[in-house]
Design a binder for these strands. Structure first.
Lengths: 260, 260
DNA sequence: CGCCGCATTGATGTGACTCAAGGTGCGTGG
DNA sequence: CCACGCACCTTGAGTCACATCAATGCGGCG
């Protein structure tokens, strides 16, 4: 029921301006670590780059140029080219997420970064960050945790488990950013979700209706409402007798929806 | 057919000694980046720790203590605890691989690190590395690339694809370390491989015999011989018309077995 | 209007999981 | 020593979940 059309998928990304993390309102979700507030350090400067919906921030083969990105607003998908059929989507990045940190030691990018909605990213130069080890450590930790939790999610054997884990991850990330964890918009298409979860679109659709029928959620086009995050969590963790499974010291990655 | 017994799975890891990367023979596979040779910098010192087969280097919940590890020799598996059944194995680390870099910004470890054979690891303190950004960048890049390629592998839908990708990865890593890419020993059990690939042990066994019957490889207990890496690669990449797919600028992660 | 992309639903096949049994080598203890 | 238990691996039969193919509905766009 969602039918936007992207007529021009390759119009160039444009418009740049200066930015400063000290005054940035995205920074609390973006930069981990305490020394962010440390104003005795020079502020991390970056160039802001707008990326129009459907256009590429960079693509596989592009020179990395010793810089990476933080999403200021919007959503970017990162996809690795695959010989067969469509590319494989490796991540959906939203406000505050880091992008292309994996390319920090590479000459050229391995994947494509495409905006799912009109977005703006902060371009960060390695040079500007490498004198701030605490900052870098926090970013690295955040990034690796995300990759690991993605792999962890993909090891969930069943389609329902994977979908539940995905939705809870989205929920948590919205919550962390100050939005409602119960109701939010899916900026990506069903096909893209299915791709990310390594499922067929049909299977994803069926799982969604199963969840709907079980009263776990409601979904109207791309508007999602979680009705029973607890049950979703039980599903995601492999159900069973996962009763007293409290966790603390959370990072930004794949996390519980016990925020009610 | 493999039947070692680990009587005591929790005897403590012991014995420490000093080590120096400048003279270490593992360094070429371990530390990426060019400034490793830079002797104007102080050498990276580290403590070597022996880990007996079956014992834990650390486990989930242990304090991180602002240090991580590089494998000097041996093999370590890193597994995340899972409420249901067995832990999920997230990585097999061998000579030169980095371990616990994901914990760099955390207080406590998320997973268990268990030696699959008698091993020795270099304990690296964050402090000692953070004045060497090039070094750190290289390590970060290497680590994230590994995580990404694991996730990429797990998105391969079929059991054969995943297994082929896994074997080629092992082959490549042996090759990089100066060992034969065609013949090597599997230090992990079938169950552990199956766990890592998110397959049932039975399915893994069947795929192995399929590969054997197809003449792609031979396997005697844990001794593996790759007979047709090219065919394996076609399988792993999703077969199809993946003809002219040359790649350069390789990292250490999931890579071709075009080395013949 | 006709086309196309997206999403859902149904019918059907199949690949992987589950359960079960059998074989093997090691370690232990009678 | 040998019987036994055990951990590991393999193989077979049956089942189920997911992929595949196909048809339909919907809405935007040319």
């Amino acid at each position: 029921m969602q039918r936007f059309r992207i007529s021009d998928t390759s119009r160039p990304a444009m418009a740049a301006s200066q930015a400063n993390c000290l005054t940035c309102r995205t920074a609390p979700f973006c930069i981990p670590g305490r020394d962010r507030q440390d104003s005795s350090q020079p502020p991390v400067l970056s160039r802001r780059v707008k990326v129009a919906r459907g256009s590429k921030l960079f693509q596989a083969g592009d020179l990395v140029g010793e810089r990476f990105y933080a999403i200021h607003y919007g959503t970017i998908k990162y996809a690795l080219p695959s010989p067969s059929r469509h590319d494989k989507i490796g991540a959906f990045l939203m406000r505050g997420d880091l992008l292309a940190l994996d390319a920090i030691g590479l000459k050229r990018h391995n994947g494509n970064a495409i905006a799912l909605e009109d977005s703006e990213v902060c371009e960060i130069r390695q040079r500007d960050i490498q004198s701030r080890p605490t900052l870098l450590h926090g970013m690295v930790s955040k990034q690796i945790a995300r990759e690991q939790s993605t792999a962890h999610m993909l090891r969930n054997s069943s389609a329902g488990q994977r979908l539940a884990a995905f939705l809870l991850d989205l929920s948590w990330r919205h919550f962390r950013r100050g939005y409602s964890p119960h109701r939010f918009r899916l900026v990506m298409s069903r096909q893209e979700i299915a791709n990310f979860l390594a499922l067929s679109p049909e299977c994803l659709s069926r799982e969604l209706t199963h969840f709907k029928q079980a009263g776990l959620l409601e979904v109207d086009e791309r508007e999602l409402t979680l009705r029973d995050p607890g049950a979703l969590r039980q599903l995601a963790t492999g159900a069973a007798a996962a009763a007293a499974h409290q966790q603390s010291a959370r990072t930004d990655a794949m996390a519980p929806a016990a925020h009610a």
